[in-house]
Design a protein around this nucleic acid. Structure first.
Length: 611
RNA sequence: GCCGCUGUGGCUAAGGGGUAUAGCGACGCCUUGGUAAGGCGUAGGUCGUGGGUUCGAUUCCCAUCAGCGGCUCCA
């Protein structure tokens, strides 16, 4: 709906002749006059027809606000077809005008409305101050989805007992916070700026201001972490014991494809779309589209099942602009998305359990822990999967918060576990996830042949073992922040530290020896830098600590003579005497089994600029 | 998306109707130094953007954008 506001000393109109869409009006409404009035010329457009309530609400609110702001005493709604070429049907337009009039009246303001569909003459005297003429374009809020049925929450204990959330006591901090947040909708326990943002800055992880809201860019240290995590997420699934097909896909899919469209509708209103003029595409919100589209063309036998498909997929979700959070909720994220095709429910349960184990292993590897929020799409889904979930609880020695969604809503999953850790702000944050999907194989036409040659739809597990790459970074940074809370320097695991070793020559005399030593370390795939600037030793040490180098050592006469380095070990926050070989083997033992990448920055500090 | 707060050199900030201040960083010179800031000096900003008020605005007003916080949201 388009509108033109004019704050007028006076406005007078008279209906002259009917057009063919004219509304019937009593004679006394054929003309009207108002003084000190905000005149609102209104054109209702075809887009408004199915959201009259929303548009009318939005417009009325704005009209009333404008009336107050400009100091008008009353309001006149004046239908005016000439602000747009895409008009609504007359019936809808009249409904809109009437609704707006009622809404404005309800707020106590004086309002009149000129007749619709008549040729009218009018005489207006505009005040001419800066706000006296304004134009508006009201889109109406997205129609709210119909009120859902009831969400059911309770706690499933290890022994299989179901306990109401009111009666549940003495759970872990994370569990209790999760109950408050998810089930009771209580407000957050703490507020303020989270400290991981400081670390994001340090590692060059930031918002990209030249893109849309919620897109990040990564300077070398952040880029290094990202790529290593991406490599790592690939290693995890490829070493999971499940046969894996690693694929690479594209990120946009056509809504002309029924399967894509249906799947997208299930995803809801956070679709990120692109219009190329001729066609509309949606940006994928996970790797599902690509992998399913690819697999449906595969000729699969039960003999090859189960198997998984994997990609670190750039994914897009149109999160609300006020809701984005660096590394945690972004519009562009990278999902190490693993889909496992299973034949039967027991098999799906077996592999679900396997993936659950991986998820717990990985969070424990970084010194953290999860609590489970287990979502079910219906009571039946709960009953069908309860025993599997109970076994997981038993395995982890943890109770789980159960959430059963309102009945009758179509979800592609039946069970969906969100793994939450409690962050520095004492908020539960979902990192890993695994789900059982019984709908998409059919939707996308994925089948396998059984012993008799008959085709069946597989059950598909969806899993992000370490969450999105960004969220795993969040978990690492949050972990470092929590270390600092206990009074020790925060550090990153050696395998992911952007700089593992910093050598600091005492003076110019030791620069070349240091660089030689660095070459030796680099040949062993260790990320090493040399502070060859002419700063003082104190300053170099300070810088190495600020840069969160895992190991740093001053190289001078003593070191050259003795062959021993006095190495500052960040993770232990102390100096340890060791030879270069000992340093190498220490690093090797800490990074064993993890991906390796060379440093993303010039090795010599004298060649580095600020970023 | 809604509400609130913030937006000053590369970074962190101070200030305030008469075109701006400090520390860090950078650069130069001196210092060749033994584990979280050696000394001196130089450069660098028109105060997020667009309007308005004013003789004059970075400072006041309006709008807008962005960030942060809270809310809603998060199939």
């Amino acid at each position: 709906m388009r509108a033109l506001y004019i704050h007028a000393d006076s406005m007078e109109f008279e209906a002259k002749d009917k057009t063919k869409v004219a509304e019937a009006i009593p004679d006394d409404l054929h003309s009207g006059k108002m003084d000190e009035v905000l005149v609102v010329f209104i054109t209702v457009e075809s887009d408004d027809e199915d959201k009259i309530l929303q548009v009318a609400t939005e417009a009325s609110k704005d009209i009333l606000a404008t009336k107050e702001r400009v100091g008008a005493e009353r309001i006149m709604l004046y239908p005016y077809a000439h602000l747009s070429s895409d008009l609504a049907k007359p019936k809808a337009s009249i409904e809109m005008l009437d609704m707006m009039k009622k809404m404005i009246e309800a707020s106590g303001a004086e309002v009149s409305r000129a007749p619709f569909g008549w040729y009218k003459s009018f005489d207006i005297k505009c005040k001419g101050h800066p706000l006296s003429e304004l134009s508006r374009d009201f889109k109406g809020k997205e129609e709210k989805t119909a009120p859902k049925g009831k969400d059911v929450y309770f706690v499933l204990k290890i022994d299989g007992k179901e306990v109401s959330i009111e009666d549940y006591k003495n759970g872990s901090d994370c569990m209790m916070s999760m109950i408050d947040k998810e089930a009771l909708g209580k407000e957050a326990p703490s507020s303020g700026e989270p400290e991981y943002l400081r670390l994001c800055k340090k590692f060059g992880i930031q918002w990209e201001s030249m893109s849309d809201v919620g897109h990040m860019n990564l300077a070398p240290p952040g880029a290094m972490m990202f790529d290593l995590i991406s490599d790592y997420s690939t290693d995890i699934v490829n070493n999971s014991g499940i046969s894996v097909y690693n694929v690479k896909g594209t990120n946009m899919f056509s809504l002309d494809e029924p399967a894509v469209k249906e799947h997208a509708e299930l995803f809801g209103d956070r679709l990120y779309s692109i219009n190329t003029g001729k066609k509309s595409f949606i940006l994928r919100y996970a790797a599902c589209h690509q992998q399913f589209a690819m697999i449906r063309g595969w000729n699969i036998s039960y003999k090859q099942m189960p198997f998984g498909a994997f990609e670190v997929a750039d994914s897009y979700r149109l999160e609300q602009s006020g809701e984005t959070m660096l590394c945690f909720r972004t519009r562009r994220l990278n999902m190490p998305d693993f889909h496992v095709m299973c034949t039967t429910i027991p098999e799906a349960h077996e592999y679900f359990t396997l993936l659950d184990g991986k998820i717990y292993d990985e969070i424990e590897n970084i010194g953290r822990d999860y609590d489970m929020l287990v979502n079910f799409s219906s009571r039946k889904a709960f009953e069908d999967n309860k025993e599997m979930v109970r076994k997981l609880c038993e395995e982890h020695g943890k109770d789980a918060l159960i959430h059963i969604y309102p009945e009758g809503i179509n979800y592609y999953w039946t069970v969906n576990i969100e793994y939450h850790m409690l962050d520095q702000m004492k908020r539960p944050r979902e990192i890993g996830t695994v789900q059982i999907d019984i709908g998409n194989a059919k939707r996308f036409g994925i089948t396998y042949a059984d012993e008799k040659g008959e085709r069946h739809y597989p059950i598909i597990l969806h899993c992000a073992v370490i969450g999105s790459i960004e969220r795993y970074m969040y978990a690492l940074l949050d972990t470092a922040v929590q270390m600092e809370k206990t009074g020790v320097p925060g550090y990153l695991p050696t395998w992911i530290a952007p700089e593992q070793v910093r050598l600091m020559p005492m003076s110019e005399d030791y620069v070349s020896a240091s660089k030689e030593m660095a070459d030796g370390l680099r040949a062993k795939k260790i990320r090493v830098s040399v502070d060859d600037t002419d700063a003082t030793v104190g300053k170099k040490v300070r810088k190495a600590k600020q840069d969160w180098c895992s190991y740093s050592a001053v190289i001078g006469e003593n070191e050259m003579k003795s062959g021993k380095l006095k190495v500052y070990v960040r993770s232990e926050n102390k100096d340890v005497d060791m030879t270069v070989e000992e340093l190498v083997s220490k690093i090797k033992s800490e990074t064993e089994g993890y991906p390796v990448r060379p440093m993303y920055l010039p090795a010599n500090l004298s060649k580095r600029c600020e970023f």
